[in-house]
Write a protein that binds this DNA or RNA. Sequence first.
RNA 1: GGCCCCGUGGUCAAGCGGCCUAAGACACCGCCCUUUCACGGCGGUAACCCGGGUUCGAGUCCCGGCGGGGUCACCA
Length: 482
Amino acid sequence: MTEVRTRFAPSPTGFMHLGGVRTALYAYLFAKKNGGKFILRIEDTDQERFVEGATEVIYDTLKGCGMDWDEGPDVGGDYGPYVQSERKHMYLPYAQELVEKGAAYYCFCTKEELDERRAAAEAKGEVFKYDKHCLNLSKEEIQEKLDAGTPYVIRLNCPTEGESAYDDEVFGHISFPNSDLDDMVLIKQDGMPTYNFANVIDDHLMGITHVLRGMEYLSSTPKYNLLYKAFGWEIPKYVHLTTVMRDAQHKLSKRDGDAYYSDFIEKGYLKEALINYLALVGWNPGDDREFFTMDELIDAFDVKRLNTSPGIFDVTKLTWMNAQYIAKMDFDAYLEMATPWFDKVLAGKGMDYKRLAELMQSRTEVFNRIPDMIRFLAEMPEFSDELYFHKKMKCDAQVAKENLQLVLPVMEGIEKWNEQNIHDIVMAAIQESGKKNGAVLWPLRIAISGQANTPGGAFEIAYLLGKDETIRRMKDSLAKLG
RNA sequence: GGCCCCGUGGUCAAGCGGCCUAAGACACCGCCCUUUCACGGCGGUAACCCGGGUUCGAGUCCCGGCGGGGUCACCA
């Protein structure tokens, strides 16, 4: 059996679309699962869209996620170059070979003529298809035009009758009427190959055995196969992947600002969580497992379990999964990642970040939500007395006032301001007063945090705030209660 | 519009003719734990697009309709 070789062939646009990351992931998983090679090829033939540093974005994303390629522009390989712009000169001879074989032909129709005819067809509500006009040119006529330097393109001569069919690894048997096939351009007027042509040549030359790509290629695949057949090359296996959607009607798009890998990383999603979640949109292991390391994914991956219906990218579920990953992170790693987010609102406050991180880790869903969660530590928020009301804690503004007056002197008397002391001393005072824990602790927490939900209880918050700030806030809140 | 693909709860998704009075996860709701929230535990609401077949029996097979997506470039 020949070695399995898959490839990921992105255009360097400067951004990695999540759909692309998933395609790369599946291609990587498939290759590794089968002990094969994963190849990276940069398709940068579109010089107009060239973006500085764009290939680095691709490298960084793939590497960051743990998808190491066996062959590629930077690591080399036996089938290079792996950058399409460096392969420019390779394609024309192949197209000429096809012309000699009668599978392709020169076409001298100008773009203007074609546009006109296309417009006319559309006006009549018809689908425009090239009419093979130049196929009928005699050898002499062709040579004459060639000699005269008339601009030309090379087109594939597609059959017009019968049907083309192939078996996709995920969609199964797919057939198309040949009458729908248009004689696609292989070589453009500038001598450069079209994307589709270059793709076939490159894939063959690089020994790609399995082509994993988006399902938008489902209907152009018959033309690809025609090329392989004309050359007498072996047709690779096709694994067409469903589209990742934003909702039932729309693909994930850059316009919505949530289509790129980097968007999520910047917000504070962990790449492991992103990869894990992405793997599950359109694929499942066949059992109830949901959490996978890259190695586990490789082990579990099976093309047979790829879905045929498109999946919606559910940020809510991704967020849940991200929170799970964060909760299981190594504490020091969490502290390091969280620190810049703590700094956004607490820089220079001398806050105990370690303790804060301990309290925050199990509550962090996405890192960018941290500032809003801890802003109250930097500045006392405005709040209404109604916050003191809590039925279960048997508390309201009046009770709050009484109980705050009770604990204020107790807290002022605490010498060593650490959590244990605050806890022990305040609890003892509550015990002595005969009051309910909740009736005292609930208003205490409100009085020093100004909000109903906080990452931690009254003692933790009081400790983080420090004695001076805690007392100051208690007095202010008490004053407000009149 | 032609052609192609797809159609199980709000979302992901199991199901491959009887084990389905349809799993699991997210979300949502309730309860428990708890000085709040979160975590955790327990429970609940919620689906086979519609219509015809085939069959003793259909979510599962076939046909049609409807709905959604894709594709019809000298773009990649």
